[in-house]
């Protein structure tokens, strides 16, 4: 059941990205390029995607998942909750996020849409994903996590 849930969640997550327009790099760039605001060409989509996603995730996490954790209940199909332990806002977090944002703003592609777009056969997307995996590999050689 755990495996089935993983696959279905991937499928739903991808469907959400596709429906929301986030798999289209021009929509993402249209949001990040705020210089378009003056001319009325700015695309606010991404803001509503975040609102829609957080509108579901935030309350359910705080009222259902957190309660289960404090009641010492395990996830429905797993033995324990895997939550990040790091608390401190440190240099790797900030520099990493800054680098990620630059790559995202240049290409309009972040990891999820990159993977979802692979079956479209776009060479640019395939090249991006290959380089992204290369970036992960190189970074892992510099710092073990």
């Amino acid at each position: 059941m755990n495996s089935f849930v993983s696959f279905v969640c991937g499928l739903l997550f991808g469907a959400g990205l596709l429906i929301s327009g986030m798999t289209d790099p021009s929509v993402v760039i249209g949001f990040l390029n705020v210089s378009n605001m003056a001319s009325g060409q700015w695309d606010p989509s991404l803001m509503f995607v975040m609102a829609g996603a957080l509108g579901v995730y935030l309350p359910l996490y705080h009222f259902v998942v957190k309660k289960r954790i404090s009641d010492n209940k395990a996830p429905v199909y797993a033995e324990q909750y895997h939550l990040p332990k790091a608390q401190r806002i440190d240099r790797p977090l900030l520099l990493g996020a800054a680098a990620f944002g630059l790559g995202w703003g240049i290409s309009g592609i972040c990891p999820g849409p990159g993977i979802v777009n692979l079956p479209t056969g776009s060479l640019t997307v395939a090249w991006f994903v290959a380089c992204m995996l290369g970036g992960i590999y190189l970074a892992s050689r510099v710092m073990r996590r």
Binding site: M22, L60, Y81, H82
Partner: peptide, 23 residues
């Protein structure tokens, strides 16, 4: 469509957490 798609993303993400305990 961004709100609906976003809601679906949030649903998939919270189901993965609630059912499998994963981010």
């Amino acid at each position: 469509t961004p709100l609906l798609g976003g809601g679906l993303i949030g649903l998939a993400a919270i189901l993965l957490m609630l059912l499998n305990g994963r981010i």
